[in-house]
Design a protein around this nucleic acid. Structure first.
Lengths: 218, 218
DNA sequence: TTATTATCGATAAGAAATTATCTATTAACT
DNA sequence: AGTTAATAGATAATTTCTTATCGATAATAA
């Protein structure tokens, strides 16, 4: 029996805005605010309240007219939507400057992410402790992923090594790669890749500045 | 005399893709490839060739049927569009883990960005040399920006300090802020802010993984 | 009690971005 | 020389995302 139900994925722009809502909501919760309206959230983030309402609707949490949403309910709804309510383990490959920075970042706990092991190829780094984790040699990577059934890999190695690391991760059963290298990784269809790319942010800043300057002189 | 010319800003998605094109093109140039087609670029980045063509049209560089574009011309066109052909100086505020990682990142030279000074409030860090730059105390920030006429500020301080640093930057004449703190900064209209937000990338990865898993089981 | 107002949630309209279609061009092949 | 195939570039169609409109609801004020 065919249904006429068409599955519609959540829009990417919506997903990207969700963590900002979460941050605001946690802040308000901490400040003791029981309820919150989309008008309020929108003001704080300089967004359109209608957009906020539509975005938040993907959590399934409903609000009440003249009141808004229950802050804690909305927070729980967002955690649930993002899957951040239960912690997921990840491996980090590449303990250079950026890798160390990520290892030192406390905020991941709030995102349901725990980096349980770190790998690098450099003799200088192997065995060293960085933010409480001992750096292991790359050749132990695949076995570790298999044994610990880890599903997320964070790649912070230089461009030339990235694809090889990605292959290793995929072979060992990784399902998602958070890729900080400036390389488009080839992976099979069942693996998702999220590219984190400084250069596109800087491009946007560069163009915004020059557009702003030329707009001012018009 | 009024003209009927309507200024249309380049779409943000286009701007974000441009650096990826640049990276590919540089690689091809290095490999000695004189000309390049959008079909080729699109293949390598898993994009639609029509989109690539439209994106690249903002550079003003034209191609030839059956041939494509001259690689070097396109590279020059992109540098020109992004304003990366002449180097811009920037200050970095916050020499913690993330700040150090950015200081150590060699790639900025290729993006026309040079971090000329670093500031921090921590006594432990002031005076220390990180990747060749001596960390200066925050109270010297404004004077330095004014004297050196720097226009770009990179903020890598913790959330609670970010807004204050932004105010200082703005007072001293900064025109663009690259904001790595998880805070929505309040700035006057003439200043542009580019937020670099790990959490939205991770949100996207989280949702992609769970959508992929549930799609597989459908 | 009744009126007013803030808000939600649904649907519609509008804007922006992507993708398709079509024509022209030109290199390579026959 | 003529034909074919690959590609650019323009315009049109489509899809996606954002914003507006409108009715319903419930708290607050009159």
């Amino acid at each position: 029996m065919a249904t006429n139900f068409t599955f519609r994925a959540t829009p990417q722009p919506t997903i990207k805005r969700i963590p900002a809502y979460l941050a605001i909501l946690k802040e308000l919760e901490l400040a003791g605010q029981i309820t919150v309206s989309t008008t309020d959230i929108a003001d704080r983030l300089a967004l359109n309240p209608i957009q906020v309402r539509k975005d938040l609707s993907i959590t399934g949490i409903t609000g009440r007219p003249k009141i808004g949403y229950i802050t804690t309910e909305l927070i729980a709804g967002i955690y649930n939507f993002l899957g951040w309510h239960n912690t997921k383990d990840a491996v980090l490959v590449g303990a250079g400057a950026l890798g160390s920075a990520l290892l030192g970042y406390k905020g991941f706990a709030g995102y349901g992410l725990r980096i349980t092991a770190t790998f690098d190829s450099s003799k200088k780094l192997i065995g060293k402790t960085i933010h409480g984790r001992v750096v292991a040699p790359i050749n132990e990577l695949e076995d570790f992923i298999r044994q610990s059934a880890i599903r997320i890999g964070i790649i912070t190695v230089p461009a030339e090594a990235a694809q090889d690391i990605a292959y290793q991760c995929v072979r060992a059963g990784i399902r998602g790669i958070w890729n900080f290298s400036p390389v488009k990784l080839a992976v099979p269809h069942q693996v998702v890749v999220q590219n984190e790319d400084l250069s596109s942010g800087l491009a946007l800043l560069s163009v915004k500045i020059s557009e702003k300057l030329s707009a001012d002189s018009r």
